[in-house]
Simulated scan of single mutants.
Amino acid sequence: MPIDPTLPYDDQNVFAKILRGEIPAKKVYEDDYAVAFHDIAPQAPHHILVIPTGAYVSWDDFSGNASDAEIAGFVRAVGAVARAAGVVEPGYRLLANIGVDAGQEVPHLHVHIFAGRPLGPMLAR
Protein backbone atom coordinates (compact mmCIF):
# COMPACT_ATOMS: atom_id res chain seq x y z
CA MET A 1 0.00 0.00 0.00
CA PRO A 2 1.51 3.38 -0.98
CA ILE A 3 2.39 5.81 1.82
CA ASP A 4 1.34 9.43 2.28
CA PRO A 5 4.67 11.23 2.99
CA THR A 6 2.87 13.88 5.07
CA LEU A 7 1.91 11.31 7.71
CA PRO A 8 3.89 11.21 10.96
CA TYR A 9 6.78 8.77 11.19
CA ASP A 10 5.72 5.22 12.13
CA ASP A 11 8.42 3.67 14.33
CA GLN A 12 7.02 0.19 13.64
CA ASN A 13 7.93 0.27 9.94
CA VAL A 14 10.25 -2.45 8.66
CA PHE A 15 13.24 -0.11 8.25
CA ALA A 16 12.89 1.22 11.80
CA LYS A 17 12.90 -2.39 12.99
CA ILE A 18 16.05 -3.10 10.94
CA LEU A 19 17.73 -0.04 12.48
CA ARG A 20 16.87 -1.34 15.97
CA GLY A 21 18.13 -4.84 15.13
CA GLU A 22 14.68 -6.42 15.48
CA ILE A 23 14.69 -7.70 11.89
CA PRO A 24 17.81 -9.09 10.21
CA ALA A 25 19.22 -7.50 7.07
CA LYS A 26 22.20 -8.32 4.87
CA LYS A 27 24.03 -5.06 5.60
CA VAL A 28 26.76 -3.76 3.33
CA TYR A 29 27.34 -0.39 5.03
CA GLU A 30 26.65 1.26 8.37
CA ASP A 31 27.73 4.49 10.03
CA ASP A 32 26.17 7.21 12.21
CA TYR A 33 24.06 8.56 9.34
CA ALA A 34 23.07 5.63 7.13
CA VAL A 35 22.61 1.89 6.83
CA ALA A 36 22.67 0.03 3.52
CA PHE A 37 21.50 -3.52 2.88
CA HIS A 38 20.46 -5.82 0.06
CA ASP A 39 16.79 -5.67 -0.94
CA ILE A 40 14.93 -8.90 -0.08
CA ALA A 41 13.13 -8.80 -3.45
CA PRO A 42 15.80 -7.49 -5.86
CA GLN A 43 14.63 -5.83 -9.07
CA ALA A 44 18.12 -5.86 -10.65
CA PRO A 45 21.29 -7.97 -10.24
CA HIS A 46 22.50 -5.35 -7.74
CA HIS A 47 19.70 -3.85 -5.62
CA ILE A 48 20.78 -2.15 -2.42
CA LEU A 49 18.68 0.07 -0.16
CA VAL A 50 20.27 3.00 1.69
CA ILE A 51 18.33 4.50 4.60
CA PRO A 52 19.14 7.36 6.95
CA THR A 53 19.45 6.37 10.60
CA GLY A 54 17.09 9.18 11.58
CA ALA A 55 13.29 8.92 11.58
CA TYR A 56 12.35 10.59 8.28
CA VAL A 57 9.34 9.64 6.14
CA SER A 58 10.30 11.34 2.86
CA TRP A 59 12.89 13.40 1.04
CA ASP A 60 10.89 16.53 1.91
CA ASP A 61 10.85 15.57 5.61
CA PHE A 62 14.59 14.76 5.53
CA SER A 63 15.72 17.86 3.63
CA GLY A 64 13.57 20.13 5.80
CA ASN A 65 14.29 18.62 9.21
CA ALA A 66 17.61 16.74 9.21
CA SER A 67 20.79 18.43 10.36
CA ASP A 68 23.43 19.43 7.83
CA ALA A 69 25.62 16.59 9.15
CA GLU A 70 22.82 14.04 8.64
CA ILE A 71 22.19 15.24 5.08
CA ALA A 72 25.86 15.23 4.13
CA GLY A 73 26.44 11.88 5.82
CA PHE A 74 23.52 10.23 4.04
CA VAL A 75 24.43 11.58 0.60
CA ARG A 76 28.06 10.51 1.10
CA ALA A 77 26.90 7.07 2.24
CA VAL A 78 24.94 6.55 -1.00
CA GLY A 79 28.09 7.29 -3.01
CA ALA A 80 30.26 5.10 -0.78
CA VAL A 81 27.85 2.17 -1.14
CA ALA A 82 27.81 2.47 -4.94
CA ARG A 83 31.62 2.58 -5.06
CA ALA A 84 31.99 -0.36 -2.66
CA ALA A 85 29.51 -2.42 -4.70
CA GLY A 86 31.61 -1.78 -7.82
CA VAL A 87 28.70 -0.34 -9.80
CA VAL A 88 30.03 3.12 -10.68
CA GLU A 89 31.15 1.71 -14.06
CA PRO A 90 29.23 0.98 -16.26
CA GLY A 91 26.56 2.78 -14.24
CA TYR A 92 23.73 2.59 -11.76
CA ARG A 93 20.37 4.16 -11.03
CA LEU A 94 19.20 5.84 -7.83
CA LEU A 95 15.49 5.80 -7.07
CA ALA A 96 13.58 7.28 -4.16
CA ASN A 97 9.82 6.74 -4.26
CA ILE A 98 8.07 9.48 -2.30
CA GLY A 99 4.36 9.32 -1.65
CA VAL A 100 1.28 7.62 -3.04
CA ASP A 101 1.75 8.50 -6.72
CA ALA A 102 5.33 7.19 -6.68
CA GLY A 103 4.41 3.96 -4.89
CA GLN A 104 6.36 4.48 -1.65
CA GLU A 105 5.63 1.38 0.43
CA VAL A 106 7.71 1.92 3.58
CA PRO A 107 7.26 5.19 5.50
CA HIS A 108 11.00 5.69 6.02
CA LEU A 109 13.09 7.59 3.47
CA HIS A 110 15.13 5.17 1.39
CA VAL A 111 17.14 5.23 -1.80
CA HIS A 112 17.35 2.21 -4.08
CA ILE A 113 20.63 1.57 -5.92
CA PHE A 114 19.99 -0.54 -9.03
CA ALA A 115 22.81 -1.88 -11.23
CA GLY A 116 24.22 -4.91 -12.98
CA ARG A 117 22.39 -4.70 -16.32
CA PRO A 118 21.06 -2.07 -18.72
CA LEU A 119 18.11 -0.55 -16.87
CA GLY A 120 16.17 0.90 -19.79
CA PRO A 121 14.23 4.17 -19.83
CA MET A 122 13.57 6.12 -16.64
CA LEU A 123 9.81 5.61 -16.82
CA ALA A 124 7.57 3.12 -18.58
CA ARG A 125 5.94 4.71 -21.59
Rank of each mutant, 00 (worst) to 15 (best):
I3Y: 02
P5N: 12
T6Y: 10
T6G: 10
L7S: 15
L7E: 09
P8K: 14
P8Q: 14
D10L: 13
D11M: 05
D11Y: 06
D11A: 13
N13H: 12
V14I: 14
F15G: 10
F15M: 13
A16L: 14
I18V: 13
R20P: 05
G21Y: 14
E22P: 06
I23Y: 12
K26A: 14
K27P: 15
Y29P: 08
E30H: 12
E30R: 11
E30M: 04
D31R: 05
D31P: 08
A34Q: 05
A34S: 05
A34H: 02
V35G: 09
F37W: 09
F37I: 09
H38C: 09
D39M: 04
P42M: 08
P42K: 04
A44K: 07
A44G: 08
A44F: 11
A44W: 09
H46W: 07
H47A: 01
V50N: 00
P52M: 04
P52C: 07
P52V: 03
T53D: 02
T53F: 01
G54I: 15
Y56K: 12
V57E: 06
W59Y: 12
D60Q: 14
D61T: 07
F62A: 09
S63Q: 13
G64H: 09
N65P: 03
N65A: 06
N65Y: 02
N65L: 07
A66R: 14
A66H: 13
A66L: 13
A66N: 13
A66Q: 12
S67Q: 10
A69P: 02
E70I: 08
G73W: 08
G73K: 03
F74Q: 04
V75P: 00
V78K: 00
V78M: 01
G79R: 02
A84W: 05
V87A: 01
P90Y: 10
P90D: 04
G91D: 02
G91V: 00
G91E: 03
Y92I: 03
A96E: 00
A96I: 03
A96Q: 04
I98A: 02
I98Y: 11
G99I: 07
V100F: 11
V100A: 09
V100R: 10
D101S: 07
H108I: 14
H108N: 13
H108E: 11
H110P: 05
H110G: 02
V111D: 00
V111T: 03
I113Y: 03
I113K: 05
I113S: 01
F114S: 02
F114Y: 15
F114M: 06
A115T: 00
G116A: 01
G116E: 01
G116P: 04
G116Q: 05
P118V: 14
L119E: 07
L119G: 07
G120Y: 08
P121R: 03
M122A: 10
M122C: 08
R125G: 15
R125W: 10
R125P: 15
